[in-house]
Amino acid sequence: MTDSPPTGPAAVRLRHATIGYGDVAVVRDVDLTVGTGEAVAVLGSNGSGKTTLARGLLGLANVLGGEVDVLGAPVGGLRERGRVGYVPQRHSISGAVPATVREVVGVGRLARLGLLRRLRPADRTAVTEAVAAVGLADRLDDPVASLSGGQQRRVLVARALAADPELLIMDEPTAGVDAANQEALAGVLARISATGTTLIVVTHETAPLAGVLSRAIVVDHGLVAYDGPLEQAAAHEEPGLHHHHPPGRRPSGYRQDQPTVTTGPRRRGDEEH
């Protein structure tokens, strides 16, 4: 965590950035700066490129042109990737082999250690605190498979928090989560944001996190269509943002062959909705 005020150096800076998979561009020519401590929603319909934009910041999609700087370094050259927290969109985190909440969250802490260092007492404390921060302290040694879907999502948040990230990137953290868990998550994010951590949340619904996020970026057909206060984002959203485009109202620029993020070389546990 940083103690610097929200007006510090940029956490993320994109200049004419083109991002995609292989050599297929999905997000094109994006200029964007996110200041340290900001809490930003990245909105857009399915296939708009919002997830690709986030994956570009994580080094999971290719920067095909322009520049993408994260925490002051080009994304490919960022040595301490552990400074960036990531909450992927996964509906379930129970793998083939049982694992406890403590074990899953412990992985997040590994990112901050070298290749061979083991978790030390300070690291174990960080894991415990991260689990407590998402309200699951009493489930620390339970198998993750025994938790509800919403609780499992909070475990993924704790895994990211365990590394004390300066920038936290989340993909659809509220999708498929019940209201009580959404509220709990909003509380967690508000506290993280208050400590100066930069938040970038890819989402298709802003209501659950409206109290936390202040700025919105709307991605449409691979371009930034809106960048400004969250409250006014809705007016700039395409009519088809939450639904499919009605046949008669499809924007003329829409191409059926538009590459979407689902065509990239993606791996297990990786879904786009």
């Binding site: 985190i93 694992a99 990112a111």
Partner: peptide, 23 residues
């Protein structure tokens, strides 16, 4: 014994491991 936690991390969620910089 030495690398078990890292091997678990990569086996469990390869994409996450890549995003946070594990080799």
């Amino acid at each position: 014994a030495l690398l078990g936690q890292r091997l678990y991390a990569v086996s469990d969620d390869e994409e996450y491991a890549r995003a946070v910089g594990l080799p």
